[in-house]
Amino acid sequence: MTATAASPIILRTTGVSKMFGKFVALNNISAEFERGVITSIIGPNGAGKSTYFNLLSGAFRPTTGKVEFEGHDVTNVAQHRFAHLGIAKSFQITNIFPHLTVHENVRVGLQAFVSRYDIWRPRSTVPGLAERADELLALVGLKDRRARRARDLAHGEQRALEIGMALAADPRLLLLDEPTAGMSPEETRVMMDLIVRLASERTVILVEHKMKLVMGISRRVLVLHHGELLAQGTPAEVRQNEQVKRVYLGQREH
């Protein structure tokens, strides 16, 4: 079935593989991602999670296979077009403007989507940008930090700010790569609560290595191992999968 805006499937990969020289990073992965839910991609280090994320976000093109978003083939679409299609992403390495204020960071993200036809008018003067920036900061829990320099935020707050910047595109699909990387347990809980709130209005796909945490917030889970799709299903189904148990046997869960 072809995915459309009304379809329960928002994103699909069909037989995608990725090779770097002779190294097979991903091998023949076919998966469907449901609209309006949280799907987590997990697996041990080196499983291919980040490579798969890069394929989903347009940063990499598959060596073979196809990626579809809302029924449209986006396999060869340039990465910078993804935001205009309705896909936003937040990478594992925080990507903010450290010398700008928190509010200015989000406003810059909003300005990128203002019409460019009025070339004589500074985008920063377009009505509503400041107000919308405040709305996004409130959504990610940073409105009371709006005047601080981004560099002065705690690590977890910087990750939340980056997500706020990604939301400036008003995406229907939000991709998050290791959103809790480097966070304290308290920061991790705050981030997970934020992801759940965000998923009430959009589809969220996240790559994570903290298996116990994602099991609590995800409706579906994909498990990668050695570049292949080992298992997929509900958290309960994945938790009971014998192959998944063997892969994680003896590994310390975070």
Rank of each mutant, 00 (worst) to 15 (best):
A5M: 08
P8V: 02
L11A: 04
L11N: 10
T13H: 00
T13V: 14
K18A: 11
M19H: 14
M19N: 12
G21Y: 04
V24P: 00
L26E: 00
I29A: 03
E32P: 04
F33R: 01
F33D: 10
G36V: 07
I38H: 00
S40W: 07
K49W: 08
F53I: 05
N54M: 12
L56Q: 01
F69P: 00
F69N: 01
V74S: 12
N76S: 13
A78T: 08
Q79F: 00
H80M: 05
L85D: 09
I87M: 15
F91E: 02
F97A: 09
P98S: 06
P98C: 06
L100H: 05
N105W: 13
N105T: 09
G109Y: 02
Q111F: 04
A112T: 12
S115T: 13
I119G: 01
R123P: 09
R123L: 05
T125M: 11
R132E: 15
D134N: 14
A138P: 00
L139R: 13
D144T: 10
R146C: 05
R148V: 03
L161P: 02
E162V: 08
E162M: 08
G164D: 00
M165D: 08
A168K: 11
R172W: 09
L176T: 05
P179V: 13
P179C: 11
S184R: 00
S184M: 04
P185K: 01
I195L: 01
A199W: 09
E201W: 00
E201H: 12
R202W: 13
I205D: 12
L206V: 03
H209M: 07
M211I: 15
K212F: 03
K212H: 13
V214D: 13
M215S: 07
L222K: 02
Q232T: 09
T234W: 06
A236D: 15
E237W: 03
R239W: 03
N241I: 04
E242L: 08
R246N: 11
V247I: 06
V247D: 10
Y248H: 06
E253N: 12
E253G: 01
